[in-house]
Design a protein around this nucleic acid. Structure first.
Lengths: 150, 150
DNA sequence: CAGGTTTACTTAACATGTTAATTGTTAGGA
DNA sequence: TCCTAACAATTAACATGTTAAGTAAACCTG
């Protein structure tokens, strides 16, 4: 097998490399989140609500990168835990608006610094400049790939 | 909010950016795979078996980036479809060895070119040089992140 | 060679991913 | 107004992700 072909192999394919990289990163966060009874996805939802305030389910799903059916299930759990609350939009009866409760905001304020500390260590090990390059390349990837016809 | 803080926001965090980029890429493959009755993960398993030949479950899981419990379930489906077959290792009764069947290899040979065509279009749109840079940065990310204490 | 320890795989339980179908609501045009 | 299309959220069904516990085989150490 030539080195050219080797690049096309499963090990080097973009989806796999992206998956592995993400796994390596998330492995550092999951134990801390689990210690607080949180999944990675639940934490994303809480962070988005704390950063953006009240949001309807569709926008919340979009910003947290979670599919609507998954979000519907998760919101029930998060609401049962007292971290968020939902209400129907008066101006559009189809929408549900969600926001973090007071208790939820306090909880987020407890977890956030721990996440930031972990993230800081990772950025420190990798290098800020490399990280900037990487994020730029990933954004461009998303853009150019979204422009290709399916 | 300063631009400095903006970078630390959920939208720009590494896990999210990696997730979005991967989603953008996979969105191009899933319809084709689904048309062949395959999930993304099943396709990874079949590709690894076709590229590496017979493998025990642990190594197969590792190379396909699938956790062992997930793999156990998937292998039953793939075997029921006649694409793979498993046998117990005579030299180590703990291990199960899996390989693609003749039918499986033919099936893989049918799907592969379609996947390669899609991949080619994506690389074309993004640029080979950028892709090389990206893969390098992702590999380095994985390495440096794995070196950070958990 | 017996005993405890590791290893490989599996099972279990719960959470999320993914697509299709459903329900309720709104918007727009004849 | 009516009627249909579009939209938002949900439900359903199946597949995978994730952690913990269980089972059986191999290893190893006294």
């Amino acid at each position: 097998m030539t080195s050219e072909q080797l690049l096309e192999t499963t090990n080097r394919s973009l989806p796999i490399v992206l998956l592995r990289a993400r796994e390596a990163v998330m492995a550092h966060f999951r134990p801390m989140l689990a210690a607080h009874g949180l999944t990675e996805q639940q934490w994303r939802v809480l962070r988005v609500l704390s950063e953006m305030g009240e949001l309807d389910a569709s926008h919340l799903a979009h910003h947290a990168c979670i599919l609507p059916p998954s979000l519907t299930r998760m919101l029930k759990t998060l609401e049962a835990n007292g971290w968020i609350e939902g209400r129907r939009d008066k101006d559009d009866g189809r929408r549900m608006l969600f926001s973090a409760t007071e208790e939820g905001m306090r909880f987020i304020a407890t977890v956030s610094p721990k996440g930031a500390a972990i993230y800081h260590d990772l950025v420190d090990a990798y290098g800020e400049e490399k990280l900037r390059q990487l994020v730029d390349l990933l954004d461009e990837l998303q853009t150019s790939v979204n422009g290709v016809a399916k």
